[in-house]
Design a protein around this nucleic acid. Structure first.
Lengths: 226, 226
DNA sequence: GGTGTTAGTTGAGAAATGAATCTAAGTGGC
DNA sequence: GCCACTTAGATTCATTTCTCAACTAACACC
């Protein structure tokens, strides 16, 4: 290996909300180092197969979890000698947001969901990577529409507010929240659809407007992490 | 070259303010491809020499321009087949902010400063990278202390406000600006030091508080691009 | 000492925010 | 069928925050 040639990997931080707390999806490693340990899904970037690192991330996430995330964004690149016992390495980290319904245990028995808050015991620098992803998601949550990707296809405003509150760790004023959602102008009511099965007034169901449903290009989003 | 082995480079977007407009520092390429064209300073990451990609960026910036930037932050990683005629490649991009005084032409004759606003004719995907850096700087300018790194060691509040206004492209209310600076609590007046040499009331000189003068760690900043 | 120019502060009016209240729309008890 | 209960969603209004303009301050120059 020439001195300018390097092994490049990607790691994916797959986040979801469970019991009103952020959880990260981890898999048991099959190979050394750290065989048997819980770690982020990751793998090698293949210049001959992958269009770029984002498609490498999507490929690896799908190969390892069979999940196609509606939101996948580049987080940062981690490099150095300390992060892997085998020596200097580089990894482009991505983070993905999926609704809890996509991670139901019966369909994905290999995925372990771990709360991100007291997070410990991860191999490599995966704890740093997860914390970076969590910080980014929480930071963007205060002024963007990011959290809608943690909800399912359709959701009510009270549900969405609860998601924001879980991420930000504080309660939000109902009027302010609805005003902000109105300003963002990214939601549309699902005509005629209301919540069902509760013993009180059912809430209006909303969904992301079509224009925001498909992913923006990676660079657009990586650049304006806000 | 095995299929999982890749050439990894870094590119540095060195930004400064000249004539109230953002400019990017470019160098003439010595080698093919695009020999002779103006391009971002960049080079190979060397696993045997560089601690990580950030120190690679600092090393390359210094080797090519003799500049040590007080602010250097990871921007994003660009990859794919289209960005380099030689084939699939990957580059970790960093951006740096320096005061105009550090770029005076007599000391750096090899550096060409180009306004970032109508930016065209750059090789590779360097235009995308510069635009990403500019978008990031502008975006962070609205709520952070980033722009102080475009000023010199000491500066007055009216000078700093002019820098913010140049970046944001709009005028800022004087009271709001001073209130925000006060809240940020990152500046301290230089005792006894005031602006000199103008025919009116001289302004108080300020500087970044010591705690903010040294760089934070890359990951800290890359994670919270806000 | 007066004048012009820019620094920095003050205060009134406008706008945004947030807590409490009120009305609406369902279910279930009786 | 009517009433009580619960939660959705709108409204009200006090409070805070922002904005603009005017005002005072400090210097150089004439």
């Amino acid at each position: 290996m020439s001195r300018e040639t390097i092994i490049c990997t990607v790691d994916v931080v797959l986040l979801s909300l469970k019991d009103a707390a952020l959880h990260v999806a981890l898999l048991r490693r099959e190979h050394e180092p750290f065989a048997g340990a819980l770690a982020l899904p990751g793998g090698y970037v293949r210049a001959d197969e992958d269009e770029d690192t984002e498609s490498a991330a999507a490929r690896i996430l799908f190969e390892k979890t069979a999940i196609v995330s509606p939101y996948l964004e580049q987080l940062a690149t981690f490099s150095g000698r300390a992060r892997d016992p085998r020596g200097w390495s580089i990894s482009v980290a991505y983070y993905a947001l999926v609704p809890a319904s996509l991670l139901e245990l019966e369909h994905h028995p290999e995925i372990q969901l771990l709360a991100v808050d007291p997070l410990k015991g991860l191999p490599f620098d995966h704890r740093d990577i997860v914390q970076a992803a969590v910080a980014r998601v929480r930071s963007k949550s205060s002024y963007s529409s990011l959290p809608v990707f943690l909800c399912g296809e359709q959701f009510t405003l009270p549900q969405l507010q609860a998601v924001y509150e879980a991420l930000l760790g504080e309660s939000i004023n109902k009027v302010s929240f609805r005003r902000k959602m109105d300003e963002l102008d990214i939601l549309e009511p699902v005509q005629g659809a209301r919540e069902t099965g509760r013993a009180n007034r059912p809430a209006q169901l909303y969904r992301l407007k079509q224009a925001y449903r498909k992913l923006l290009s990676t660079t657009d989003r990586a650049i304006n992490p806000d």
